[in-house]
């Protein structure tokens, strides 16, 4: 059963005199309970991708074309009331900056309780008890006292736990997680990530984790999509992608990770920077930074190449469709994929 199916989604910024594409022909399928990572540099469009799922894009960014289906229902054509029934209920979000996500003049309790009561007919008391148990879930103690406190009485890590508790108030089926630890201290990152992972296993909740950190994503997900300049350049099972990256960009990302560096020499970097939204080059968008670029890379956009050897699914019950439009099977968008001959 497909939980979420995004097909050929294109997002664009629509200005009065021009239109800039931000996300190009994006497709993704996620099964119930599956954990997916969306990796890319900032500006690649990965946050926009998950915000579009709940139609929370800020103008002038709009869905230009494509379809988003959740449990078989089309989201792109939903009105606000229908969307609100979904938002924060079956699909919840965790934002990047916990310091900004909570309203400074409302107590922690208010945040949790209003989320629950917006989506159920719980009484105040029942919602309160539920909120307390969720705070316990995210390892917050002295809950009654904390329910009455205001967000600014908490540290960043604690606030992110509260945001996670908010996201779990309604037994969601899918969590959209946007760089949950970028704004936090490195020391707290691991704790928060572990908490999110454990809760998703415990509550059987799928998630899409957006991050620029491939190392982090590789530890928590079963499948990874690599996004570059508004396009998915490679999608594969996490274990495969780490071991056998097919796209030069993925390879570059992996070589940048400290834990994957073979030698103890200088850290590797990908030369140059990602082009901005309105300066994407002709041909393969990665070619100016690519070590392997050949002449046709500069002229034509590479098509999606399905990888020859299908990889055994990490989540056993995921059914794969054979259609190229919904490439759940591993694929890469490159003329000259690396590691082609290896398994």
């Amino acid at each position: 059963m497909k939980l979420l199916e995004i097909k050929n989604l294109t997002l664009s910024f629509q200005y009065p005199n021009k239109e800039v594409i931000a996300l190009d022909d994006f497709s993704l399928t996620i099964a119930a309970g599956e954990r997916i990572g969306l990796v890319g540099e900032s500006g690649a469009g990965k946050s926009l991708a998950i915000f579009s799922i709940l139609k929370l894009l800020k103008p002038p960014c709009k869905i230009k074309s494509g379809s988003i289906r959740f449990c078989g229902r089309e989201i792109t054509t939903m009105n606000e009331t229908e969307l609100n029934r979904l938002r924060g209920d079956k699909i919840t979000m965790i934002f990047q900056n916990p310091l900004g996500s909570l309203n400074p003049v409302l107590t922690v309790g208010t945040h949790l309780i209003e989320t629950a009561r917006a989506h159920s007919s719980l009484s105040y008391k029942e919602a309160y008890d539920l909120a307390c148990s969720r705070l316990n879930d995210v390892k917050i103690t002295r809950v009654h006292e904390r329910m009455r406190a205001y967000p600014n009485e908490f540290s960043g890590g604690m606030r992110q736990r509260i945001v996670i508790a908010c996201a779990l108030m309604t037994n969601p089926q899918l969590m959209l997680i946007d760089e949950p630890t970028t704004a936090l201290d490195v020391t707290i990152q691991a704790e928060i990530m572990e908490l999110i992972y454990n809760l998703s296993v415990e509550k059987k909740c799928a998630f899409i984790l957006v991050s620029h950190d491939l190392g982090l994503v590789s530890q928590l997900t079963e499948r990874v999509l690599v996004l570059y300049a508004g396009q998915i350049v490679e999608a594969n099972a996490t274990r495969q992608i780490i071991r056998y990256p097919h796209h030069p960009y993925t390879k570059g990302l992996i070589e940048c990770l400290p834990e994957f560096q073979r030698t103890k020499k200088q850290l590797k970097v990908i030369p140059g920077r990602m082009p901005g939204l309105d300066e994407w080059p002709v041909g393969c968008r990665f070619h100016p930074r690519c070590d392997f670029a050949k002449n046709d890379c500069k002229e034509k956009m590479p098509a999606v190449t399905r990888l020859k050897k299908a990889v055994s699914a990490p989540v056993s019950n995921v059914k794969r469709t054979s259609s190229l439009n919904t490439p759940v099977a591993p694929y890469v968008k490159c003329f000259y994929p690396l590691n082609e001959k290896k398994p």
């Binding site: 606000e80 938002r87 919840t92 979000m93 996500s101 909570l102 409302l106 917006a118 908010c166």
Partner: peptide, 20 residues
């Protein structure tokens, strides 16, 4: 950001405007 987050939690427009 907290208004955006409130929207993401599916709160009604009135609640977002008048409470948040």
């Amino acid at each position: 950001e907290y208004i955006h987050f409130a929207k993401a939690r599916g709160l009604t427009k009135n609640r977002i405007l008048y409470v948040h």
